[in-house]
Nucleic acid binder design. Sequence first.
DNA 1: GAATACTATATAGCGCGCTATTTAATTGCA
DNA 2: TGCAATTAAATAGCGCGCTATATAGTATTC
Lengths: 123, 123
Amino acid sequence: MNKVYRKLLKPLAITYPQYLVMMVLWEHDSLSVSEIGERLFLDSATLTPLLKRLESAGLVTRSRSREDERQVVVALTARGRSLQARAGKVQESVFCATGCTAAALKDLKGELQRLRARLAAGC
Amino acid sequence: MNKVYRKLLKPLAITYPQYLVMMVLWEHDSLSVSEIGERLFLDSATLTPLLKRLESAGLVTRSRSREDERQVVVALTARGRSLQARAGKVQESVFCATGCTAAALKDLKGELQRLRARLAAGC
DNA sequence: GAATACTATATAGCGCGCTATTTAATTGCA
DNA sequence: TGCAATTAAATAGCGCGCTATATAGTATTC
């Protein structure tokens, strides 16, 4: 999975986890670190360095929230937004590589999500 | 997945990837690095340091093969073998945590294996 | 209003999995 | 035989995901 994305994302010069963060931001434009974390099941220990790399790549900005100075708001830059267009083919290519129908993939995704929930809940 | 195993393997003081290697060795007792790699889809860059950790934990030995000095043969120690008994409950606990029937898990495994094969083959 | 508890990030440190490269042993071919 | 090609491990270096801990800022409680 990671390996498939790696090849496709090489032209964009981002990694697969970075791509996941960008996808979340393309939907919401601006989110706090923990809001991103909730959506991707990642915590600040993972996200902080990743976001710093996206920041130094000029794709996002990180700034302390005015209302709550504990929070760091991550927002897309123009460059970050424009990357979305170039990323269009990625999803398509991965879908093609799976050789699955959209319905089969949806089923599999649902099954894995349920499994994750059960594993997280404990025995 | 990893997180579930981590908790269960803590008493054994090994990680989940280390546990996978031990499972392979419990079946075969002695294998070369690349033979382990084939079974787990891992290469020497990942396995060499992992095996060194298992070696320094006293669970395996690593020695150059006599027939082919390029190969390193990894073999269980007595301590490594005896760990198998203590690991008995791990599989059971994980199975329980999935909340799946054995048949459902088998199906899911097959589906994911086919998906991996397709992804590896390319579009 | 001050001490306390809680929350959001950040940091340190570890193991894993990867790519790219190196080293050493074996194979194969002229 | 000798030299090139191949193979098996090892190494360097990077990003990720985790646990444990620290550092702030905010909320609560008395």
